[in-house]
Amino acid sequence: MTKILLASASALVLGTAASAQVVGFSQIGSESGWRAAETTVTQQEAEARGIDLQFSDAQQKQENQIAAVRSFVAQGVDAILLAPVVATGWDAVLEEAKEAEIPVVLLDRMVDSDPSLYLTAVGSDLVHEGEVAGQWLAEQVGEEPCRVVELQGTTGSSPAIDRAQGFRNGIEGHANIEIVQSQTGDFTRAQGKTVMEAFLQAENGGADICALYAHNDDMAVGAIQAIKEAGLKPGEDILVVSIDAVPDIFQAMAAGEANATVELTPNMAGPAFDALQAYWDNGTEPEKFIQTESKLYTQADDPQGEYDRRKGLGY
């Protein structure tokens, strides 16, 4: 009996000491630059912690993800990271993982299953991102009147709805700030530019616009070109704030053409690994939702350095 206890204790000690934990990661795919960056960062974070990461790319198919999770369970991995492609249909496979006592951490997106079936979920709060952007603008303009044009995401998509709502929350109580134009730019650079041109036309050649709020950086990058071509200085004549913190917006900030961006961090794995470590060490149950920081970057935050740090991540 003592022998067995000793053996298991030493195994535990050895396990933690060598940190030879195996974690399976079922990624959706690589449909966007952000997604590719998330994969890269997850691999970097695992490497830094000495975790053996088993990566599986589902190519946007739920059945591939379910198969991957099943195979992780069969391998007896120590934990599973899952970035679910859809919200429903996970109950069975999550129960299998739970029976095998393998903790599952959801990354970036939620599922419609019972929270007891997964350890925790790591993600950003889309509404909060908008709020951060709105608050930055409110602080920036103070009591000056400010007419804002808004480039929305794809009509009806949840980031577009939530980021629009968040921004309005952020400027609430500041009657001097008014959203005067709001149109969809479909999250693309080309549409961002096209729609911004129309805004400039509609607002007295841009002279009446005080700030631009774009639901993602790509649209902002397009809009910045439109502003420049209209003979105005983006970042000075028109303040530019957007969301995502992709490398190109840092380049614009370094050039003084964009003012602020709110980060949607691709580092979902870091907090996930931290929570898992605590769980492995002493069984600490984390909160059911770990919100990543929606960090605000401005021209004061070494945009050139941020650009250099990010451009290798696969954005």
Binding site: S32, D186, T188, R189, A190, Q191, K193, D218, V221, G222, Q225, D248
Partner: peptide, 11 residues
């Protein structure tokens, strides 16, 4: 040329 970038998904 217009957006100074090739956007394979959306162009």
């Amino acid at each position: 040329g217009d957006i100074r970038g090739a956007d394979a998904n959306n162009a």
